[in-house]
Simulated scan of single mutants.
Amino acid sequence: MVDTATNRVALVTGGSGGIGRVVSERLARDGMAVAVHYAGNEAGADEVVGGIASAGGRAMTVGGDVADERAMAEAFDAVEQGFGGVDVVVHTAGRMVLGPLTDFDLDDLDGMIRTNIRGTFVVDQLAARRVREGGAIVNFSSSVVKLAMPTYAPYAATKGAVDAVGLILARELRGRDITVNAVAPGPTATPLFLDGKDEETIGHLSKMAPLERLGTPDDVAEAVAFLAGPARWVNGQVVYANGGIV
């Protein structure tokens, strides 16, 4: 079995920015070699890799549209060639467009379906074929699936599908010693989340959790690191990293 703390290789989709960047950096600090995936932000991925390397870690970049099975197969190939295999896949890449269901643009819905559902299916399918014994697959869901907040219906629908894909895959991988879980963040202070929100809205969201603050990317990365490393008896679960919002 591959060691659960060191000598492991992780592929982090969407690792060029936001939560994916912090997850990449955290797994590198935990001793993993990290492949930082990007779709359009190659410069951001290079910056993450440079930071990991400067801190003494091992990292490389890989690119590709997560919904394109050929592009992502090439990304997995590159990781295997560069680091010898894949032990952990963290699928943070996703797309979020908000709006009321009654007049939501169906082109935006199709785009989210492609990235969030097909992308998860493609990445998980490749991970199921490639991740080594003792490995872990961590998808990204969202707390809005159960919070039922207005304007989030299209996005939450795609994340509900992410839950279904991962929970069923965990059972289909019986006998492989590979865990499959999802992290479901709540309101998290990333530039993307904060963009366009006024102070009143941010203040309201920060009070939703009993801890009375927004989450941080480090909070979410902590949950990912647990599932990607020591949490060998946590399997087929959605972990709500949201400070206690119910």
Rank of each mutant, 00 (worst) to 15 (best):
A5H: 12
T6W: 11
R8V: 02
R8L: 02
V9H: 01
V12D: 13
G18F: 03
G20Y: 04
G20M: 07
R21T: 04
S24K: 12
S24V: 02
R26V: 14
R29H: 09
V34Q: 05
V34P: 00
A35S: 09
V36P: 01
H37G: 11
Y38T: 07
Y38N: 03
G40P: 02
E42T: 04
A43H: 11
D46H: 14
V48P: 03
V48R: 04
V48F: 03
G51H: 09
I52D: 02
G64P: 00
V66L: 05
A67Q: 08
D68L: 01
M72I: 09
E80R: 12
Q81T: 14
G82W: 05
V88N: 07
V90S: 06
V90Y: 02
A93E: 09
V97N: 15
V97L: 14
L98S: 14
G99H: 01
T102Q: 11
D103R: 13
D103I: 10
F104Q: 06
D105I: 03
L106V: 15
D108R: 10
L109T: 02
D110C: 07
G111D: 13
R114C: 06
T115S: 07
T115Q: 08
V123A: 14
A128W: 03
A128K: 00
R129E: 15
V131N: 04
E133V: 14
E133R: 15
G134H: 02
G135M: 12
G135A: 13
G135S: 09
A136Q: 01
V138D: 10
N139P: 00
V145M: 00
L147D: 13
L147I: 08
A148P: 00
A148E: 13
A153V: 14
P154S: 01
Y155C: 01
T158Y: 01
G160S: 09
V162R: 06
D163Q: 11
A164E: 13
V165H: 08
L167K: 12
I168E: 13
L169D: 09
R171V: 10
T179D: 10
V180I: 04
V180R: 04
A182T: 13
V183S: 09
P187L: 09
T188D: 07
P191T: 08
L192E: 15
L194P: 01
G196S: 13
G203R: 10
G203H: 02
G203E: 11
L205M: 13
K207Y: 02
M208N: 05
E212F: 10
E212W: 04
E212D: 14
R213P: 04
G215P: 03
T216N: 03
P217I: 12
P217H: 12
D218T: 10
D218N: 13
E222C: 14
A225L: 01
P230M: 15
A231M: 05
V234Y: 03
V234Q: 08
G236Q: 12
V238W: 04
V238S: 04
A241P: 00
A241D: 02
N242I: 09
G243I: 11
